[in-house]
Design a binder for these strands. Structure first.
Lengths: 174, 174
DNA sequence: GCCATTTGATTTCAATTGCCACTATGTGGT
DNA sequence: ACCACATAGTGGCAATTGAAATCAAATGGC
């Protein structure tokens, strides 16, 4: 709006910048900072109180949801790097939150599952995470939430369509 | 599905898990992976072709938008850590894309601005970034884009309300 | 004017992360 | 059965990153 006025006045200036990219108007940037803000809120829940990192919590959540899994399966479901999964599993094992058992079907891999302690922690975190989600979404009505979810999905699909799996990295937390 | 069958058979088992957190249904997780997918697409534009990292491009974008600024101002506008800003500026300066000049108002800081080369690169990247944004959003109509932007903003506001600036970190790229 | 405090920028150091290579096991062709 | 090749997991190293410490300049009280 101001630049509009300026251009009226300085029409003939040759060095007028017409093509600036205001980050504030750039939707991918907005998406990024919003995601980070939300991620940090959620991460607080399990980082501060339970000393879990994002990767570790993601693995716990997936194990809680899907039962015993191999690291390969965890890698698929968490969309994390296999090394990150491996390290998270190692930590969980050392803390007694998950156990490894030999995989009868494949001697190379192990089946990972939550231990009793792991379940206890999991069951304490889930309600807290849900509660934080509820508070974050409290300003959106039911319809808006559905819309938002749908828009996110379509954006993700489109992104995948534009380039199959582009140099993935950096999980901002969930 | 299998667990569903099992629960029919073992209805009275006391350890039936009712409170799993399926990541796929957890909105903060969806937001996170969507943001990463989009960020990686955008980052390709300036990483592959121009060898810029996220932090560096953000600084360039803000300088392109706001003219000469101090690092402090850049930190505010990019929402990045001041060390990250400092390192990005150093790189840009070494590559001859930005220049530092003494700040008359404050001897501690310098005014950073894009050089001629910096502008040239900036003006080549902006259309490409916009184009990628356009392609990413091609599945959304005008109304949906406005809605999406508004929802993101409200989510961000709510997040900030829930806890003033919580241990910020990890910018997933923009 | 002078000292204490604050602020902008920078350096240093420890922790985290990603990438590459390696081991071990499994799979399929001949 | 043997070989080449693919796959699961792991260790090590280099690069990235964040937090705290440091330096330099400015600000405010007296």
């Amino acid at each position: 709006m101001l630049s509009g006025l300026v251009s009226l006045v300085t029409i003939s200036m040759s060095d007028k910048r017409t093509d600036v990219l205001s980050l504030a108007k750039f939707l991918p940037y907005q998406l990024s900072i919003t995601s980070n803000a939300v991620s940090n809120r959620i991460a607080q829940v399990y980082r501060c109180e339970f000393g879990l990192k994002v990767t570790e919590w993601r693995v716990m959540a997936v194990l809680g949801d899907g039962g015993a899994l191999t690291q390969r399966q965890l890698t698929e479901r968490t969309l994390m790097d296999k090394v990150a999964v491996n390290r998270a599993c190692k930590v969980l094992e050392q803390r007694g939150l998950a156990s490894r058992e030999p995989n009868a079907q494949d001697g190379r891999s192990h089946m990972l599952a939550l231990t009793s302690d792991g379940w206890t922690m999991h069951d304490r975190i889930v309600p807290l995470a849900r509660d934080m989600e509820r508070r974050l979404l409290s300003q959106l009505n039911a319809e808006e939430r559905v819309t938002f979810e749908s828009l996110l999905l379509r954006l993700r699909d489109q992104s995948n369509k534009l380039g199959p799996a582009g140099a993935d990295s950096a999980y901002g937390a969930d």
